[in-house]
């Protein structure tokens, strides 16, 4: 016979009248249940691809994998459990970021890389790493340290999100964070060195691509998502009328990469 706290007994014995809840929270996400949602940094007006390379990367990966989902815009990285956009709300309500998204998509929509040989897998890993370090770094550096880009593209992009004077503070704060991140990778930020690293990476990627449809034959892989995201952002965001942005020029030199980027965009992200 378990001992029952007399206080609990008394509480249970007395009548408690319960009314229905005053408020049932709207299901979140407020979408048809079961459809996963990818939260991305807002796109520019003309496109459905985000202006943020990391978000484009996952948009592309989901599109390549034919993973059924919807897109929501969000400019608060704080909403994401990792503090970074994008994040995915899976059909069962789990909130996933980064690698977890890749795993989730592989498990539900099939593995894009299952047909690759071991050599190709090794290439995929090393070229992904190459793009995610060299191209990412060069893009970040150009966005925050190319004065024209910074003043006409990057700052306005962030400043549009918040009211004055908070927008001035926050955009500078983001720049400080990015600078700190870059300095944690390189002790000195040299424009020429960063650019030549990117050029080498672009040359290597151009060679790997050759005249193929995708990097590993006729089907897209995660590497395609990665490279497309950087190329697309570089080509679309860094286009300044009447000014040459070195990183963009470096991409433009590789015809096959430009064609590739255009083709992927038209196939997967063209507005219908």
């Amino acid at each position: 016979m378990p001992w029952v706290n007399p206080s609990t007994k008394l509480q249970n014995a007395l009548p408690l009248k319960t009314h229905p809840a005053v408020f049932v929270p709207a299901a979140w996400p407020a979408e048809p249940a079961g459809v996963p949602i990818l939260y991305i940094f807002p796109p520019s007006k003309q496109a459905i691809t985000s202006v943020d390379a990391e978000c484009v990367k996952y948009q592309a990966f989901l599109a390549f994998s034919n993973y059924k989902h919807t897109i929501q815009e969000c400019h608060e990285p704080g909403m994401s459990p990792s503090g970074q956009l994008p994040f995915l709300i899976a059909s069962d309500g789990r909130i996933l970021t980064g690698r977890q998204i890749v795993e989730e998509v592989k498990n539900t929509a099939g593995d894009l890389e299952s047909r690759l040989t071991d050599v190709e897998r090794a290439d995929l890993t090393s070229f992904t790493l190459l793009a995610e370090t060299k191209l990412d770094f060069a893009l970040l550096f150009t966005l925050w340290y190319d004065n024209r880009i910074r003043d006409t593209v990057t700052f306005p992009m962030y400043e549009a999100l918040y009211p004055w004077p908070l927008n001035k503070i926050l955009s500078r704060q983001i720049r400080a964070e990015k600078t700190e991140w870059m300095l944690s990778r390189k002790s000195v930020l040299k424009r020429d060195e960063i650019l030549s690293d990117a050029k080498q990476a672009l040359a290597a990627l151009s060679t790997l691509l050759g005249s193929q449809l995708f990097f590993f034959g006729s089907k897209a892989s995660f590497l395609d998502a990665v490279v497309f995201s950087y190329l697309h952002v570089i080509l679309s965001q860094l286009a300044l009328p009447g000014a040459d942005v070195p990183l963009r020029e470096a991409v433009m030199r590789h015809d096959n990469l430009v064609q590739y980027c255009r083709r992927v965009f038209n196939t997967f992200f063209a507005l219908t």
Binding site: L16, K17, T18, A21, V22
Partner: peptide, 18 residues
Amino acid sequence: NYCLPLVARAGDRMAGGL
């Protein structure tokens, strides 16, 4: 205080007892 919630709504977090 020794408290007794008498009327509540579904969802209210009660703290009956001490």
